[in-house]
């Protein structure tokens, strides 16, 4: 451990609310110690959730870890705090470029260029984007960019703090993720517990004479949970209580559509 890092760690331990975590996480990121960098940055983001630069740091570390969905979420969080924050537009532009989301990449990189005109890295990215886009448009129609199973709902969920899971009939996660602030994926736990509710509803419908069930909504102390049958499994969306029920239902519809399309494509 370098003297710098040791000193900063001690300073942070002495004053956990200090902003020293920012250079500390940067140093750890620079040294490739991603696990520690991520931990420091996430802890800092919990304490300083109102700072756009903190979420940018979380995003860059997540990207270095290969976790694109967390990175995107963190950058979007930055933009919800500071809509013109250049670093977040730069990061999202780069991410969208990597994923072949050309229009979004162009919009974010354009905003980033306006924020820091003449930045050589941005100029190079801008040029590369247009070359790649022209090549892609000239090429014969290719299948849509495949998301990893964990990411298929990211666009439908946006920045609303909602999470979505696609579960099979046994309650196992097929797609989506439920990440805590610490980066732990609780999808399997949530899926295992909540999938039984769908089974219970299916049993009930045999006696109700109301046809098949199309949606279940649960309002709990901490969350609103909605689910809809999808193929022989269930699509589930969970949202903090402050998200309006109507919005959660709308998100469920979008996620169920995404899941059906994804299952159709994956089949």
């Amino acid at each position: 451990m370098s003297a710098d890092i040791r000193a900063m760690s001690e300073q942070l331990a002495a004053d956990p609310s200090s902003l020293i975590f920012l250079p500390l996480a940067e140093q750890l990121l620079g040294r490739g110690d991603l696990a520690h960098a991520s931990r420091v940055a996430r802890k800092g983001a919990e304490r300083h959730a109102h700072r756009a630069d903190v979420h940018d740091l979380v995003a860059r570390i997540a990207l270095a870890q290969g976790d694109e969905s967390t990175a995107e979420r963190a950058w979007r969080q930055s933009l919800s705090i500071a809509p013109e924050f250049g670093a977040a537009h730069r990061g999202l532009g780069f991410l969208c470029y990597r994923q072949g989301r050309w229009s979004e990449a162009e919009a974010h990189l354009g905003t980033a260029r306006s924020a820091t005109p003449g930045d050589p890295a941005l100029e190079a990215a801008w040029e590369a984007l247009h070359v790649a886009r022209a090549e892609a448009e000239a090429a014969p129609a290719a299948p849509a960019v495949a998301h990893t199973p964990g990411q298929i709902f990211d666009e439908a969920l946006g920045d609303s703090g909602q999470v979505a899971l696609l579960l099979d009939r046994d309650g196992l996660v097929v797609a989506g993720q439920y990440l805590t602030a610490e980066g732990e994926d609780l999808g399997a736990l949530i899926g295992a517990h909540l999938s039984g509710v769908g089974d219970e509803a299916t049993r009930a419908m045999r006696h109700f004479g109301l046809g098949a069930w199309t949606r279940i909504a649960l309002e709990t102390e901490a969350a609103t949970v909605v689910m809809a049958p999808t193929d022989d499994g269930v699509t589930l969306v969970a949202a903090p209580r402050e998200v309006p029920l109507g919005l959660v239902r709308r998100t469920l519809e979008q996620c169920a559509t995404v899941a059906r399309q994804w299952l159709g494509g994956a089949a």
């Binding site: 517990h193 909540l194 219970e200 109700f208 069930w213 949606r215 909504a217 649960l218 309002e219 901490a222």
Partner: peptide, 27 residues
């Protein structure tokens, strides 16, 4: 269903269930 939902949401860390809606094709 309500009991199952309450137990499941408790186990999943969402706390107690206060309301449950089951929507079907005809009601």
């Amino acid at each position: 269903l309500y009991r199952k939902a309450s137990r499941a949401s408790g186990s999943a860390g969402f706390g107690q269930t206060s309301f449950c809606e089951l929507e079907a094709e005809r009601g």
